[in-house]
């Protein structure tokens, strides 16, 4: 156990924790949005993310990157990265909508119980993972370095590199945009209405199918953008990348209070920081022990998660 590292490396641990937390948050939002309207854990959401990472990779391959280039200039980078992000968002968003139609919609119409939907979700997840295992030859795939990763400026022990700034600015911008969509648009109102009381929402003229499809689209787009950030930051992917990240994002959503948007955000940043500090102090191998211990403790005392109470009042 080494507490002195908290003193000397505090700033760098916080920065990395927040960057990782921001990526978790974008994925966690997908879990929490779907849970909010359907009361269903969309286990295949992590695979929507994984699909996004390969979409990113596909774009760079089509653009002719082999991976051994020097980083490109900032102007060209922004153009390239926006293209990558948009393609990943479209790929993940449409995959999420397709998933809803194929794996959930019919079950919902038939009035199947939640357990069937859960099994369907797990089935869809396995299907996608194994499909991509075959398609990608179970290999690790590398992503070209688009951005110079030298430190731009430093705050105490934290190195602010361009990729971290892109992730932070992008993620916070997107969270703000999501907040506006949920609060200010007709479909956003629909999401809030359905998550409060589906039957009443239907009576009030809300098109539930449309709202649910839109929810999946939102979650998918967020996961797609998250995958672009992930690729920029880690520069590698694999068919099981979604599983590893999905577990963290899902945990973050539960920690914050599943179904609650602000909870998912808070839970993600909390989780990012907890992971970073526990692995620095106790060793990386203790990271998940500490993380899940904290999760269990939080749920013991507050079963709805940190911000779970707000769900009932539907303050999404």
């Amino acid at each position: 156990m080494d507490f002195s590292i908290v003193v000397s490396e505090f700033a760098s641990l916080v920065l990395d924790g927040i960057v990782v937390g921001a990526i978790y948050a974008l994925v966690a939002l997908g879990y929490t949005l779907v849970y909010g309207v359907l009361r269903l854990i969309n286990f295949a959401h992590s695979e929507i993310f994984m699909l996004g990472t390969f979409a990113c990779l596909g774009v760079t391959m089509l653009l002719g990157y082999t991976g051994f280039e020097e980083p490109i200039g900032i102007g060209l980078f922004l153009l390239t990265f926006i293209l990558i992000t948009v393609v990943a968002a479209v790929a993940s968003g449409s995959a999420a909508m397709l998933l809803e139609v194929v794996a959930y919609r019919r079950l919902r119409r038939k009035g199947a119980n939640r357990l069937s939907s859960l099994i369907s979700a797990i089935g869809a997840s396995f299907f996608l993972v194994e499909l991509f295992r075959l398609l990608t030859d179970s290999k690790d795939w590398d992503f070209p370095r688009l951005l110079d990763k030298n430190s731009l400026f430093e705050v105490s022990s934290a190195y602010f590199t361009a990729d971290k700034l892109v992730v932070l600015i992008g993620a916070f911008g997107l969270m703000f945009a999501l907040d506006r969509i949920i609060k200010g648009t007709r479909l956003g109102r629909g999401i809030r209405a359905v998550s409060q009381d589906e039957k009443t929402a239907v009576l009030m003229g809300v098109d539930v199918d449309k709202v649910i499809a839109f929810t999946f689209l939102l979650g998918g787009v967020l996961a797609g953008v998250a995958s672009a950030f992930y690729m920029l930051f880690y520069e590698a992917t694999k068919f099981n990348v979604g599983f590893l990240l999905g577990i963290s994002a899902f945990t973050a959503a539960v920690l914050g209070g599943i179904g609650n948007i602000r909870g998912a955000l808070a839970g993600s940043f909390a989780l990012g920081l907890i992971q970073q500090f526990s692995s620095a102090i106790l060793g990386y191998n203790w990271r998940d022990v500490v993380t899940f211990l904290i999760l269990v403790l939080v749920l013991l005392f507050k079963p709805t998660g940190l911000f779970g109470e707000a769900l009932q009042r539907a303050r999404v």
Binding site: D2, S4, I5, S8, E9, S12, L13, D16, V20, S157, Y234, A236, V241, L244, Q275, Q276, S279, A280, Y284, R287
Partner: peptide
């Protein structure tokens, strides 16, 4: 995938 805490330790 995330080695940043290990890197921080190596640095220290």
């Amino acid at each position: 995938t995330n080695f940043s805490s290990v890197v921080a330790k190596v640095k220290k």
